[in-house]
Design a protein around this nucleic acid. Structure first.
Lengths: 200, 200
DNA sequence: CGATTCGTTCTCTTGTTGTTCTCATTATCT
DNA sequence: AGATAATGAGAACAACAAGAGAACGAATCG
């Protein structure tokens, strides 16, 4: 497979950008306006190149015109959403960056990546600066390490213990103490499924 | 192979610098501007010398947007050589399996992947079952975590401390003790550059 | 039915790319 | 001093990317 030209890459990026929004797939004419082009014929060449490269699939003609649907955006790249610390909310990046993640560090369900700041989980082998892969879901089993939103404000990475009428978040650092909350004060935002660290 | 001229080395350095960024490979004209040159023809000679030396590869798309890609563009699959433990040699797989590794967990030099068994490095955040990315080289700086072959028999993962006439391997587990050897009894097989863990 | 919009195909033009060539300048070595 | 290599400028060329625009068939809507 030959490499993409810069323009083809731009078209692909735009398609992937629009894919996340719950909007209908754009038409050729719509893409032209988004790219500032005035000729559908020119854009058609780029799209055909993307189809030939297996990066995009055309949709059958149903509602007036053929529309393009972008494919699964590269299975081993996940969105990198920002940093997480004990006691601070997530510093979310405005635009989603991505990070490539080995398949065995993630699950088949939607996942995302955070970078840990702080040593609240150091005894569990999660150090300051590590990257963690989080499976996005809103419930967890006891003993799992979760991303928890407390009081709608703070987001933290802790091991969870759920009892009737009480939720306890346990750090893995002897210098820190467990904290208990009412179940309605804790919202689970994901469960730890993988971890990575670079030594440099 | 003849030596590189100073100018060729400068071009190579610049290409390697730009390689880490996720930007598209530069064009000849772009490189000219970066180097302060006004003639693509002159730069072309240097690039051809680098290609002849096998240090750089041109892209296959001929005529019309050929760009230069620096060598060893870090394929994201590395050989997975087996398991490593404190006190046992590497259980090498007969045929090399491979594992995909994110680019930021490895270096530009040759690397491979091992799986850790045992808890001898647990206080450094490396637990039983973790995967470690090792850069293949035969020397290390003090304080780095290395794969060391002892007496030509046992292979272990430890933090290294090299003194005149003595090499000490320090585990990161209070239950274990450091071990000192003569320099000729310890062969460094690689240095830790990355680590991964799957929770499942 | 006609009007509109869609994808598709085609030609033409423009700009940029890598490539090759000649020539001038400078530094280094014998 | 003279020879050699390194370096750069600049011109010229063919190949390609990219866009504009026209034309065609098919499908939808009023």
């Amino acid at each position: 497979m030959t490499r993409l030209t810069p323009r083809q890459q731009a078209v692909l990026d735009l398609l992937r950008e629009r894919a996340t929004e719950s909007a209908p797939p754009p038409t050729l004419t719509g893409l032209c306006r988004l790219l500032g082009l005035r000729s559908r014929g020119s854009l058609h060449k780029h799209v055909q190149a993307l189809i030939a490269a297996g990066l995009v699939e055309p949709l059958d003609r149903q509602h007036g015109g053929i529309r393009l649907i972008p494919p699964a955006p590269a299975p081993d790249t996940l969105p990198f959403l920002g940093k997480i610390a004990a006691g601070r909310p997530i510093d979310a990046f405005p635009q989603a960056e991505t990070m490539t993640v080995p398949p065995h560090l993630r699950t088949a369900r939607p996942c995302y990546v955070l970078q840990v700041t702080g040593d609240s989980m150091c005894e569990a082998g999660i150090l300051d600066g590590d990257f963690v892969v989080i499976e996005h879901r809103d419930s967890a089993r006891n003993g799992e390490i979760v991303v928890a939103l407390i009081h709608g404000e703070e987001t933290t990475l802790k091991r969870i213990k759920q009892e009737p009428g009480r939720v306890t978040l346990l750090p893995a650092n002897q210098a820190l103490l467990p904290a208990s909350f009412a179940p309605e004060d804790v919202a689970i935002q994901g469960v730890l499924v993988g971890q990575m660290r670079a030594y440099r």
